[in-house]
Simulated assay, not measured.
Amino acid sequence: MHTVAIAIFPGVQALDVTGPMDVFAEANGFIAPQDRYEVTVLAATAGPLRASNGMTLTADDTFERAPRHFSLALIAGGPALPEAAPDAPLVDWLASAAAHCDRYGSVCTGAFALGHAGLLDGRNVTTHWQHAAQLAEQFPRANVDFDRIYLRDERLVTSAGVTAGIDLSLALVAEDHGPQVALAVAKRLVVFAQRQGGQSQFSPYLTAPADDASPVATVQAHVMQHIGERFTVQQLAKVAGMSARNFARVFVQETNITPHEFIERARVDAARKLLESGGAALKAIAYDCGFGNPDRMRIVFTKRIGVTPMQYRERFRSP
């Protein structure tokens, strides 16, 4: 028997809980009774609590009364976790789970709770793309991967945002019972057994500069307004009114990326918008966004977001 504990709290993301639960429940239909998953939902106190979407969830047991050992212990995420530290009973239970459970980890922003429990130091982890930078800043000793759908670091497992908890759970089912069982479960749930690409295909590459009147912001706006053109550091430094050497230094200081990196990201984002919104030929999009040709655009797309431009269009094009 595989015993699974999922920790919840007021304001939890319901799908972070129910997604993995459905994977394990469906898996039970394809495996022997002695190998099935038994899922227990835990909370600090007994009784119903409200998830972030308004759904009422009820724990099966409390942290205090629950067994110390589970095959797998997971903390679900919630919209408030990146900003507010979880309550002490949850943090204490996570620390205990890490010491006594075969595997432990988080779904989505549950990684922040792991961080407060001191469980991320020196570990390779991921979380929702929208909060990955915040997790890295808040827990600087963690090695945060901004792109992975899920990660396994020895006994520690973490996933990206919301539905990625399903991907993680399918991977654990494949680990426990083989890929054919995981594939059968994925078919039942009408999801991919192994999703192509990383979560960067769902996230924008570019963020607005802190000071939209700064020389760096002026350069960024110039690049995006002339995205089909070729750029050199010398040309961009002239737009900023700086020497090339000083411009490159200031740009990295303010954005944490090089001008070349910014230009490539800007081209990818421009191409994604065209792929999402229309049926223009890939050759035209590649030219208009400054890649030069479709082959170059395909190479950059595959490197940046893990899928080709055609695959991206098939997934995200508006009807």
Rank of each mutant, 00 (worst) to 15 (best):
T158M: 00
V216E: 13
R298H: 07
S169K: 00
T127M: 07
G110E: 07
R265F: 11
V162G: 02
G115Q: 08
F63V: 01
A98S: 05
H100A: 10
R36H: 10
G241S: 03
T62L: 08
I149C: 11
Q196M: 14
A46C: 07
I285W: 06
V39M: 10
Q134G: 13
V144N: 10
A7G: 08
A5P: 10
V250Q: 15
Q235C: 10
D92L: 11
T3R: 09
M242T: 04
R317M: 10
L119G: 04
L156A: 00
A14H: 12
F139A: 09
L90M: 13
R245S: 13
L172Q: 13
Q134E: 15
A84V: 15
G77Y: 05
A76N: 03
V41W: 06
V39K: 11
V4R: 05
H116P: 14
G77F: 07
L57M: 02
A98K: 05
Q235D: 12
A142T: 04
T302R: 15
A97M: 01
A95Y: 01
A97H: 04
A98I: 01
A7E: 06
K283D: 15
F291V: 04
T207F: 11
G29L: 15
A160V: 07
M242Q: 07
L183G: 12
G198L: 00
Q199W: 08
M21E: 14
V190M: 12
Q34K: 13
L72E: 06
A27M: 04
V216A: 10
S277C: 01
V250F: 14
A59L: 03
I31G: 03
P33F: 02
Q134P: 11
N124D: 15
M21T: 15
D288F: 04
L135Q: 01
I166A: 04
V219H: 00
A111K: 07
Q253A: 09
P86C: 10
E137M: 15
L15K: 01
A213Q: 12
R298V: 04
V216H: 09
A210Q: 11
A27I: 05
V252Q: 15
L151Y: 03
A14Q: 14
I227F: 06
A213W: 08
L15W: 01
V181N: 02
A111W: 06
A164L: 00
T163A: 04
F24I: 05
L151F: 05
L15F: 02
R313S: 05
P79F: 05
P204V: 12
G279N: 15
P309H: 07
R267H: 11
V300A: 01
A111Q: 08
Y104G: 01
